[in-house]
Design a protein around this nucleic acid. Structure first.
Lengths: 346, 346
DNA sequence: ATGAAAGCGCTAACAA
DNA sequence: TTGTTAGCGCTTTCAT
């Protein structure tokens, strides 16, 4: 004997049990104040008794927005974005939202596609680390349909959109100045794609620190793989003006360098000092411990979420939209690789 | 002058444009074969012309399942799970699904709550790394309502559920045997919570390798923090039967050990050898390079997703349910910390 | 403060 | 093969 499929309770059943009309129940679950306290209590009792939960699908169909937010990042397996994702999801939960994620794989077409798919699901807000270089009208169109959008890590080019970024430029500047303070004159700067906002900013910081001390910048961009890094290092070691220090524009490059320097038997920081950008779990464990400019993914995600929820409620009450840009500080963490502490403790 | 809100097109408009009935359009978008090819073409043309996209909310309301899958892991910022999440999301996308994520924070109540919330959104499938020790009837109840569930990394205790796990036991066994092969007799085993499936399995592997060689297991569990690890190490170094090698049950413990061993000036592997479980980006960069048992999060996620989509289609055609358990191999990656290659190259 | 009716976009069931 | 009807659960509008 097959029992009935046991459909979840509807407001109709709640209404019947509470002996009120449908609308009263609807008002209760929407926190509409136009309900007499005594009625409210009856309805709440019925809701509890039945274990009623609102049916999002039905509400969506009536044009409401889902209590979901979306997160689009270039790569979820990147530790920085992974921490962001964790934080975002955590905060979303405490606000009663669920989190939809997508990785853009650094492909701007994929990014906008995913954003449109999410928007199609009528979510309330979208957090995005864009891989789009030029301003994207498609994204802005979504915004106009009532989707709250906040960019983080990188601003959205030419968009009236909130953004949370970090002090990439001054962070880089500080790092390079620190190296200069250690007496270095030939400081190379290594990284990949300058068209990425953060990289560009860091490069600017590097240049400005070098210029400020009358030093000649030695920039090597477009270096992505460990092989590329190896080639660069081999050439650099043989070169006439062999650098005595390197500023690595990101986590990955710093890691490659660490590995190769060890492989080539170059003493760090004695023969070549190193400072990176982006802190990571093992930065203190690698040998030598890596001096690096740290940003806080948790804080970035937090601020971005705060902004997003602001926007969501603005949208709801049709408030004005004044895009905010939050710039978070970074910290230069001094460890051994820059020459500071020969034997770094924990 | 405010332009009309520009509602997205509905099947009604598609039907009008294609000069067919509503149901014909519905059939087309549901791949129902009972449509004449010529009609199909007309409808598809209209769909393309209007840029029609199906409204999930309406379909949900009719009792269908959303083309979304859910992923619940203990911690999204953990690199293993982050890679899983990335892979899951990627595969979901290619199947036309979106991915909802949640972290359980290793709290089984939170886990089931999130699962129920997801289920309430009528998603098609759920991938879960459970933090629940005993079998959870609430999860099984969700399963009975037509939600496809696949566990990975850890099986679901006492549940008729598919699971994808790795060869934890034999991997640990091999690692310990390897250490024994290096001549070690006093091999400590360090880790945290044995009630976690993977840890338990690895401990069993450790014990069995030790016993097989007539050695006495020296297990130290419940060690979670770096402070705990430090205390253990201090005690171990002073002890009469000071271990000459350590098998670390997970990434984190291995990392702590590496750091502390460096801090204490203990030469690895000469004074104390080390083998870990779980590979990570920097395992080859740390010094000494860490020998470890590697599992592939990408492969785990892939298999889990394959299983999940199998289940989803089974559910759809009401097929029998035969829970599968997939056990994936692990690989012992020999680097320097076990004593194998004194100077590990890349 | 409360309720009745209409309908959001879609599909299951039936009819043609 | 195709179209018509009804209604999923909810909220909006308009009564009361």
């Amino acid at each position: 004997m097959k029992q009935a499929p046991e459909r979840p309770p509807t407001i109709r059943e709640v209404a019947k049990l509470a002996r009120v009309g449908l609308m009263t129940v609807s008002r209760v679950i929407n926190n509409n104040p136009r309900v007499r306290p005594s009625t409210l209590k009856k309805v709440n009792a019925a809701i509890a008794a039945l274990g009623y939960q609102k049916n999002e699908a039905a509400r969506l169909l009536k044009g409401q927005r889902a209590s979901m937010i979306g997160l689009i990042v270039p790569d979820l397996s990147d530790s920085f974005f992974a921490v962001c994702a964790h934080t975002v999801q955590q905060i979303a939960r405490t606000h009663g939202y669920m989190t939809l994620v997508a990785a853009s794989e650094r492909d701007s077409e994929l990014e906008i596609q995913q954003a449109e798919l999410m928007a199609g699901r009528k979510l309330a807000g979208l957090l995005v680390v864009t891989s789009t270089k030029e301003g994207d009208e498609r994204l802005q169109r979504l915004q106009k349909t009532g989707l709250a959008i906040v960019a983080f890590d990188r601003p959205l080019a030419g968009a009236q959109t909130d953004a949370v970024v970090v002090e990439n430029r001054s962070g880089a500047e500080e790092a390079v100045r620190h190296l200069i303070g250690h007496g270095h004159k030939r400081i190379a700067c290594l990284g990949y794609d300058e068209s990425v906002y953060a990289v560009h900013e860091r490069v600017e910081g590097y240049k400005s620190a070098m210029h400020a001390s009358g030093l000649k910048p030695a920039l090597s961009l477009g270096i992505n793989s460990i092989e590329g890094t190896r080639k660069w290092l081999q050439a650099a070691l043989k070169s006439a003006d062999r650098p005595t220090a390197v500023f690595a524009l990101n986590h990955r490059t710093a890691t490659y360098l660490l590995r190769l320097l060890a492989e080539f038997g170059i003493a760090v920081p004695r023969e070549m000092a190193l400072v990176g950008f982006d802190d990571f779990d093992l930065a203190a464990v690698v040998s030598p411990a890596l001096t690096t400019v740290a940003q806080s993914p948790v804080e970035v995600a937090r601020r971005a979420m705060a902004l997003l929820f602001d926007r969501i409620s603005d949208h709801r009450r049709g408030a004005e939209f004044v895009p905010a840009k939050i710039v978070l500080p970074v910290t230069l963490i001094l460890r051994a690789s820059c020459g500071c502490t020969p034997h770094a403790p924990a």
